[in-house]
């Protein structure tokens, strides 16, 4: 019954995924595939269900009300959330998330140990490598995460995911709150992570970033898929433009 992951090269398959909160249907019958090695963009107006979709996929903090999620050939919608993370489907959060009292390096080692299943020495090597990959300032790695800047904490959140060598990384609006040069740096970072063999799903409001990095784009509106396909075509889709009510960001 399960579709094999190699059948169409899909690493993740969402099938008729739905999430209800009482009367409200936050995510409504959404189906899509993410192919191995691609950068898959997700856009949509506020409240369109983008972050809820990430919550459902990772089980943090809740899974779907209905539907199936197949990751690397296995149904994961009933797995405990930490098992999904360990299986290599790892997310970041839209708001800042870090272990504030732990040092920057410990923050990353944690991901290497628990997501990556690495032992101490290997985990520390993986953490150093991930810190390098995100361009984190080595001199500041012994500081508690709470003393770091917004951008540094974003770097850490991504590094702690990368350190565990995930198969798929879900990035939830990583560009939020960043300056223009930082956004550009972030775009390069996303591409370099993909080049390490990590498949990426990217939720983003900053369309320049989305168009720069993603190979395919899905637009959600009111919890349902509005458009889906080549990013440059999708953003010109009349329904998408209307959903955004002609927001300036769309006119590039």
């Amino acid at each position: 019954m399960n579709a094999s992951p190699d059948q169409n090269g899909a690493l993740l398959q969402a099938r008729n995924v739905t999430r209800r909160f009482g009367e409200l249907v936050a995510v409504n019958d959404v189906s899509f595939d993410v192919l191995k090695g691609e950068i898959f963009g997700i856009a949509g107006p506020n409240g369109s269900g983008k972050s809820t979709l990430f919550n459902i996929l990772t089980g943090i903090p809740f899974g779907p009300s209905a539907g199936r999620i197949i990751f690397m050939g296995e149904e994961i919608q009933r797995l405990p959330a930490y098992r999904i993370s360990q299986a290599g489907l790892v997310r970041t959060f839209q708001k800042d998330a870090e272990f504030p009292t732990m040092t920057a390096r410990e923050n990353v080692v944690c991901g290497a140990v628990y997501c990556g299943g690495l032992r101490r020495d290997a985990a520390q090597a993986a953490a150093d490598d991930a810190l390098d990959a995100v361009g984190f300032d080595k001199r500041r790695q012994s500081l508690p995460a709470m003393d770091l800047s917004v951008y540094e904490r974003k770097q850490l959140m991504i590094a702690s995911a990368v350190a565990g060598s995930p198969a798929m990384l879900l990035l939830d609006e990583p560009a939020a709150g960043l300056t223009k040069p930082e956004i550009k740096e972030l775009g390069d970072l996303v591409l370099s992570i993909r080049d390490r063999g990590v498949t990426i799903v990217l939720i983003e409001h900053v369309l320049t970033l989305l168009l720069k990095v993603s190979e395919r784009l899905m637009v959600l509106n009111q919890g349902a898929v509005l458009a889906h396909g080549d990013p440059h075509e999708v953003v010109r889709d009349q329904r998408v433009v209307e959903a955004y009510l002609g927001k300036r960001e769309l006119v590039l």
């Binding site: 098992r83 790892v90 272990f99 009292t101 944690c110």
Partner: peptide, 16 residues
């Protein structure tokens, strides 16, 4: 310590 600092994030990093 990770759990104490941020439970949701800890789960997202594979901690049971």
């Amino acid at each position: 310590r990770a759990l104490r600092d941020n439970e949701e994030y800890a789960v997202a990093r594979g901690i049971p």
